[in-house]
Write a protein that binds this DNA or RNA. Sequence first.
RNA 1: GGGGUCGUAGUUCAGCUGGUUAGAACGCAUGCCUGUCACGCAUGAGGUCGCGAGUUCGAGUCUCGUCGGCCCCGCCA
Length: 582
Amino acid sequence: MAEEKLLKRGIYCGELRQEHEGEIVTVYGWVNSMRLLGGLTFIDLRDREGLLQVVVNETFAAPALLKEIGKETVLTVSGRVVKRAKPNPDLPSGQVELVAERIDILASSAVPPFVPEGRGAVSEELRFKYRYLDLRNPGMQRNFRMRSQANLRVRNFLDREGFLDIETPMLSNATPEGARDYLVPSRIYKGKFFALPQSPQQFKQLLMVSGFERYFQITRCFRDEDLRADRQPEFTQIDIEMSFAGADELFAIIERLMREVFALRGIEVSLPFRRLPYREAMEKYGTDKPDLRIPFQIEDFTAAAAAWGSDLINGALERGAKVKGLVIPGAGGWSRKQLDEVNETARKLGGKGAIWMRRAEDGFKSSLKIAPYAIAALYEERKIAADALVLLVADAELPALILAGRLREHLGRDFQDKKRLEFLWVTDFPLFFYNEEEKRLDSNHHPFTAPRPEDIPLLDSQPLAVQAIAYDLVLNGVELGGGSRRIHELALQKKVFQLLGLEDREIEKRFGFFLNALNYGAPPHLGIALGFDRLLMLLLGEDSIREVIAFPKTTSSLCLLTGSPSTVSQRQLDELGITVKK
RNA sequence: GGGGUCGUAGUUCAGCUGGUUAGAACGCAUGCCUGUCACGCAUGAGGUCGCGAGUUCGAGUCUCGUCGGCCCCGCCA
């Protein structure tokens, strides 16, 4: 078959303007819609830059040709650009139209299951199945254009700041800590496995030992864990590491990077970002990634609650419970039904329920059996606005804070200013937490995180009191990224591995190469990794990272387009020395 | 692993306390129509009610199981 002769495209459909009037042009595109008026036909032709109205006169084309054209047919049209008698103000190209002098069908299309315009009107299931059609949607086209631009801008910025883009292996070792690994069987060494990287952590530290001083990579990471709106099994990180610098210097670079990226949408980011120690974040917001757009925070009512004379509360207090609460402005007028729903929500979020208090028309009321004057006294003493709702939870301190935090997040949605950006550094994380299941210490961040120098003496005596030089970047309640200063001294790294309960043999086997590297002049270094997909989601105002990933997986980790994961042939399994358990 | 929610025409949905022939809109097909841009008008086709079992004289509707989408908890160093 002879190759089709495609005329050189001079201009995109969506780019035609009044200034092109009178020109003869050739455009390529997909039929977005058609309007047949008998002897006259209008075709809205779409390419990546937008729509253009093509006029087809009866005198020009045989009706047979038009019969073959339908939605999503691929056409090339040549003709003259003319000014419209009646412009369409809704179309950027609406001042002009193209009078067809030649039309060729380059590809026909079956009737599509949905049209590219209707992203919100189609189930996500169908969008996944026909992702290539879904991606024709102008909003999706915008998202991926923005993704491309953001990627370039991050690269250019980091290049200017002296960072080198260095690739690290995708095939490496499984890690004993952290998320579940995706394993890749070795054909040559049967029974041995590579793992896809959860992050390039060790490699980027080795690059610091190698003396590159400033490294970055925009790279794919893999974690075999359950999915969420902001979690996919493979995702992209902006990975950064630098030597001979402190956290303040790193923070400043990341802050400027954020300003750079958000400028793509004309959004001004004010610097520097707020900083909040982890402890304070938990106390005020019940989470380590608070959404600062919500205009109320968690308050402590433990001392006040002792005076209420409630058997329920008193019993809880005797068991060491704390009473944490939210004062929600203007919510005092919520209906009984709404308040019941709040209580139900508290249960669904993993709590026992929530107590409410408010001032009704006929005096103070509460779902807790306490005297109205006690509530009145509380409102008076705490200077709570008369129209505010008080929501309380009683539990051990941490669960109470977490539940109150979740309620704050849930109920605060209506109070958020969607346009506001609240960046936040959460700092001073504990180095370890106690893993109840495994009955041992676990790293809060990862095992390479450095403790504060002044806390090193506490490692043996009070390991849980040791603070790390670790930080998370949070934007509007989403964890955008996290990082830390790394341990660069062999002895300290060994010590931390031991505290994590790793056997010496295991340390040697898994991390021997790494510890060895620390023997040869490892510079002090620190770094951070930012979730590129999450960053784009927030930049574009999307609710899910699936909207910024071209071919994402469903929440049960399936690809509805390709059907992966799928079985493989017995021959492939044999070659790898793998037997599948039934 | 657990909780919630959804699954009916190509699509988005309606379908009451179980009852005769499962509807609407858009899309699609055919015809008419020379200034439409959500074109209009007329006619028509199109359904294993996700799948399987059960209860019942009778199931889109009730029960159980199962598969799939989404949200959340656990998990995500």
